[in-house]
Amino acid sequence: MEQGIVKPKTQRHKRILKARLPKVHENDKKSLFIRGGNTSETVTSVLKDLYALKKPNATLFRKRNITRPFENATSIEFLSKMNDASLFMFGSHSKKRPHNLVIGRTFDSQLLDMIELGVENYQSLESVKGNKCALATKPCLVFAGPEFETDDELRRLQSILTDFFRGPVIKNVRLAGLEHVIQFTANDGRVFLRSYRIALKKSGTRIPRIELENMGPNMDLTVRRTHIASDDLYKKACRKPKAAKPKKVKNVSGDIFGTKRGRIHMTSQDLGNLQTRKVKALKRNLSETKSAKKTIKRLKSS
C-alpha cells in the first residue's frame, strides 16, 4: 500500500507517521508479546519474564489473541504493523504442543521468519532467589555449541535470538553496567537458555575476574515447526543502504598489523628547473671564479 493516501489530520498523527517511515539508520526494533487462545502458567510466566527483560522496547498484550501463526500469519502481521514492532513472541498451550512459544520477526510488516519452540524445565525470574540486574540493561549474549554453525534451523534461530535479545544499539557502554548475560547452548537439538547476573571481582590486574550468579529466567527449548524466509527475501531484508555504509577512503590502505599505507599521485616533474647541489667545479664560467684565477696565476709563475 502506497503511503500518504490518507492524509494525517493532526500534527501528532503526522509526527507518528513520519517516525514510522523507512529510515537509513533504523530505530531499535520493538517487540510484541502475544498470548494465544490458551496458555499454560509456564507460557504466561515466560512471556512476562522476557517482557520484563526487554521492557522499554516491548509491549505485552493484556488480552488474548486467538490465532495460529503457522496456519495464518496475517493477524500477527497486522498487529506488528499497527504497533510498529517487528519482533514478536507468541505463547500458547495445547495437548499436541504443550508450552509453546513462537518467536519471529517481520520485515516491511510482512512475516520474515519464525520458529516454534517448546519450553521445558522452566525457572522463572521470581523463583530464583538473589539479586536481579537493573531494568533495561543491555545483556551480553553467548552462543555455545557447534550446532549453531552446522544446523540450518539453529543458525537462523541464533540470528532471531540475537535480534530479539540484543537490546538497543549503542555507541558507548558503561563498564560497571555490564551485569547481565544470556547464554544459549545447543546440544542434541535442544537449546538451553540460561540467564546470569555478572559480578565483577578484583583480579589484581586492570581486567576484573568475572563470577556469575544464577538470575533466571532459565528454560530448555526444543525446536518444533519453523518458517524460514526464502533466500531472496532474506537477502533483500539484510541489504544495507548506501548512505549507511562507511565512505571508502581512496589511496589509503592498511594491513592486520596496523600499518597505514598511503599512495600519492603527483604531476610529472620538470627536470630542467631541478635544484641540485651547488659545486664550484660545475660552475659554467670557470675563468671568473677566484680559485680559477689563482690556479692560472700559479701556472704562469711556474
Partner: peptide, 20 residues
C-alpha cells in the same frame, strides 16, 4: 562513570523496513 566506546555491530541482521 568509565565508559567504553563500542565498535559498530558486525553481525548481519535483517532490517525492520526496506531501504528508503
Amino acid at each position: 562513570a568509565v565508559v567504553a566506546k563500542l565498535p559498530d555491530p558486525e553481525t548481519r541482521l535483517p532490517r525492520e523496513k526496506p531501504i528508503p
